[in-house]
Design a protein around this nucleic acid. Structure first.
Lengths: 154, 154
DNA sequence: TCTAAATAGTGAACCTGGTTGTCTATCGTG
DNA sequence: CACGATAGACAACCAGGTTCACTATTTAGA
């Protein structure tokens, strides 16, 4: 295997690919009226989803403590992307829901991601891109949406 | 293109692939006597390199302020992975060098990354993996080592 | 040559996002 | 109906990032 690329290139390229897409997404999102949504906020809003959730549940989804989830929700609330309301069936709970602005950001993100993917397809060819996605599916955990991105660094 | 996978899967898979490798690396690194080196430290040590560097230079390489670079060097120093010494030709500068322990961690990382890549090659086939790497090279910035990973989140 | 600009490092104050521990209010069950 | 489990909030702390300000040294130019 002495002719193989060094192993460290693989994680590097994966990360650069990820970063490239996320940076492009947020540049475009800023252009479309969402300049202050940070990469992490996108993932959090995705995790909140259109049906809403609670801080505890969100923390579990994202793999962080409920307090950390609560703090992030607070900042998202300050930015106008989510709102909280008491659950009438269980007054301990506070349902976190996306505001129209939050839903707009989410919808735009989905469209922009599709466009970015189309850009890659134009460069690589649709078949190569599909192969790339298929290969990645084989070497990554199957339950896609458990990213617990926040804070896994450090 | 209505039959294409949704665009958001691509960044997700790239990130999961990256994360999978990094997590595996650090699990193995911990097993091999380096339990307290964090993912970010690995990138920083890689950026320091075998020849050493300075805080300012390191900051530029990593895309963070010199103060931030300095702080990270401090913690790495506390952990015994780097040491600092004044540059005799320019007494303003302090050269940051990897200690033997730092070099050991770096060497082990390289070997483990190679092994992890071999694992992917066993799953996907060497040709598919090479194709994946080649495709990623085409859609990511060419100058590989400018990751400025620290803090690009948030 | 000598002064002024540029550079290296450091410290302080602050921000974000993470942690754990503690506390209260509410729910649900034995 | 009392007690354990759960939801949320608050505090103290940590890591790593930022900017601003400052000192010490080097370098370049009038």
């Amino acid at each position: 295997m002495s002719n193989d690329p060094p192993g460290f290139e693989l994680p590097l390229r994966l990360f650069l690919g990820f970063r490239t897409l996320i940076d492009a997404l947020h540049a475009e999102l800023a252009r479309q009226g969402h300049p202050d949504v940070r990469p992490m906020h996108g993932f959090v809003m995705q995790a909140i989803g259109v049906d809403g959730t609670t801080a505890v549940e969100l923390g579990r989804t994202l793999g962080v403590s409920k307090q950390a989830a609560g703090k992030t929700v607070e900042t998202l609330e300050r930015l106008g992307y989510v709102e909280r309301a008491r659950d009438p069936r269980d007054t301990r709970r506070k349902i976190v829901r996306l505001t129209p602005r939050g839903l707009d950001a989410l919808a735009r993100s989905a469209r922009i991601f599709d466009e970015l993917r189309a850009g890659w397809a134009a460069t690589l060819g649709e078949d190569r891109l599909r192969a790339l996605e298929a290969d990645l599916r084989r070497v990554t955990p199957h339950d896609a949406f458990r990213l617990d991105i926040p804070g896994w660094f450090g």
